[in-house]
C-alpha cells in the first residue's frame, strides 16, 4: 500500500515535470496550424502559415543546416586530433591549451561575438559571409567535442594502444586512423550530437554576427516573432521541431547502437 502510494507520487511528479517541459512546446506548435490563434483552434486548422514561413525563410533553414554540418566537420577535423594530442602529452602547456579551448563555455556568447567583430572588422568580405558565423559556432562548440572525446580516451588506455600500434610498425597517421579514431567513436558520436544541436539552436552569438543575408533558423525565428503574426512565428517553431527531432532521434539511436556493439 505504501509502495503504491510512493509510486503514484513519483509518477505524478514525473508527469508534471514532463508537462512543464512539453505543454509550452505543444501550445506553440498548435498555434502554428491554427487559422486564428486568438480565436483558438475552433477557428480551424490550416497549413498556410507553414507554407508562408517556408517561402520567407527556407534560406535561413538551409543555411542553418549548412553551418551546423560545417561546424561539425571543423570540430571533427580539429577537435579529435586536438583531444588526442592533449591526452597524450602531459605537461603544463597542454593543460593551458585545454583550459583555453574550454573557455568559451564560461564566456557569454555576446562577448565572444564582440571579440570576433573587433578582430575581423577589417575583413569585410569575411565579415559579410556565412563563414563568419561558422567561425563563431566552431569556437563555441569546440569544447564539447574535445571534452567528450577526451572523456573516452580517459576510460581506455589510448597511449598504450598507440604505442602498441607503433611497435608493430604503424606510422602516426595510420595509428590515428586504425586505432585511435575507431576506439574513440562513442565520444566522437556524443560530441557530434552536441555540436550539431548546439549549432542549430545557437542564438546569442549568431544574432551578433549575422547580416540580413546570413540569417540562421533561430535568428529567423526571432525575426518572425518580432515582425510577423504570432501564427507565422509558431509555424516556424513547428518547422524547427520537425527538422531537429528526427535528427536528434537518429543520432541518439546511432550512438546507442555503437555503445551496444
Amino acid at each position: 500500500m505504501r509502495d503504491r502510494l510512493i509510486f503514484t507520487g513519483q509518477l505524478l511528479f514525473t508527469l508534471l515535470v514532463a508537462a512543464f517541459l512539453v505543454v509550452p512546446a505543444i501550445l506553440s506548435i498548435s498555434a502554428g496550424v491554427t487559422v486564428n490563434y486568438f480565436r483558438g483552434i475552433s477557428s480551424g486548422v490550416t497549413l498556410q502559415w507553414v507554407f508562408q514561413v517556408w517561402e520567407l525563410y527556407a534560406g535561413t533553414i538551409l543555411l542553418s543546416f549548412v553551418i551546423a554540418f560545417a561546424t561539425l566537420a571543423a570540430t571533427l577535423v580539429a577537435g579529435v586530433p586536438a583531444a588526442y594530442a592533449l591526452h597524450v602529452r602531459a605537461g603544463r602547456l597542454s593543460r593551458i591549451i585545454e583550459e583555453v579551448i574550454t573557455l568559451p563555455l564560461a564566456i557569454p556568447g555576446l562577448a565572444i561575438a564582440l571579440a570576433l567583430l573587433f578582430t575581423y572588422q577589417g575583413f569585410s568580405d569575411f565579415r559579410r559571409s556565412w563563414l563568419f558565423i561558422l567561425t563563431g559556432h566552431v569556437i563555441y562548440t569546440m569544447p564539447f567535442m574535445v571534452r567528450s572525446v577526451m572523456a573516452v580516451f580517459a576510460t581506455i588506455d589510448i597511449k598504450t594502444l598507440d604505442e602498441g600500434a607503433a611497435s608493430l610498425g604503424a606510422p602516426p597517421w595510420r595509428r590515428f586512423r586504425d586505432v585511435i579514431v575507431p576506439n574513440a567513436v562513442p565520444g566522437i558520436l556524443a560530441g557530434s550530437l552536441m555540436v550539431v544541436t548546439l549549432s542549430l539552436g545557437e542564438f546569442n552569438l549568431t544574432w551578433m554576427l549575422h547580416t540580413p543575408l546570413t540569417k540562421t533558423l533561430p535568428i529567423g525565428l526571432a525575426d518572425s516573432y518580432a515582425s510577423m503574426r504570432l501564427e507565422v512565428a509558431s509555424a516556424y517553431t513547428l518547422i524547427f521541431f520537425v527538422m531537429i527531432i528526427p535528427l536528434l532521434v537518429a543520432m541518439q539511436m546511432f550512438a546507442d547502437q555503437e555503445q551496444k556493439r
Partner: peptide, 12 residues
C-alpha cells in the same frame, strides 16, 4: 616486437 603489461590489444 613488444608485449605490454596491459597487452595493448586493439579493442576495435
Amino acid at each position: 616486437g613488444m608485449v605490454f603489461q596491459s597487452y595493448a590489444l586493439f579493442p576495435n
